[in-house]
């Protein structure tokens, strides 16, 4: 029995919060943000969509396998950690590179950002896998 107000607010919320979660993910290690809180924001807004529109209706148009997201993120984070060992450095060593893009000016590319993206997918996958499967068991 969700009202039309909640549904409209949810439709407005979903793209804005997903954009905010990606911005938190890319804000990275120098500013507040990072993979974990970005993943939590993404998972919470998808959970809001599940709650407001109902799991059965959402499954008809949006039904990813969240366990695969978990596995992809864990693989990506582990491979980022191992990559430095092939170049003779320590485990988990990060490389920093400054690049100049036309429209954005100078930005800082860090290989720890790939690890953050892995953490992002791990958090999304695990939270939504638990949420969906716990909520699903009464039918």
């Amino acid at each position: 029995m969700t009202t039309i107000i909640t549904k409209t607010i949810t439709k407005v919320c979903i793209p804005l919060v997903i954009l905010f979660s990606i911005s938190l993910l890319l804000a990275g290690h120098n500013n507040p943000g990072g993979g974990f809180i970005g993943g939590v924001m993404f998972a919470s807004v998808i959970a809001l969509m599940y709650v407001v529109f109902g799991l059965k209706y959402v499954k008809t148009f949006f039904n990813p396998d969240w366990a695969k997201w978990f596995g992809f993120g864990l693989t990506l984070a582990s491979l980022t950690a191992f990559a430095a060992m092939f170049f003779g450095h320590n485990f988990f060593r990060s490389a920093v590179e400054f690049v100049h893009l036309p429209l954005f000016g100078e930005i800082e590319l860090v290989s720890a950002g790939l690890f953050d993206i892995g953490v992002y997918f791990v958090v999304i996958g695990s939270l939504l896998f638990i949420f969906k499967n716990v909520g699903d068991d009464n039918e």
Binding site: M1, T2, T6, C13, V17, F20, V40, M41, S44, V45, A47, L48, Y50, V51, V52, G54, L55, K56, G135, D136, N138
Partner: peptide, 20 residues
């Protein structure tokens, strides 16, 4: 954002007895 989502979820659970 997290407070908004939590309040809506708990309200729906109290109202209907199920979350989804």
């Amino acid at each position: 954002v997290i407070s908004f989502i939590g309040t809506i979820t708990i309200s729906k659970y109290l109202d209907e007895g199920v979350v989804f």
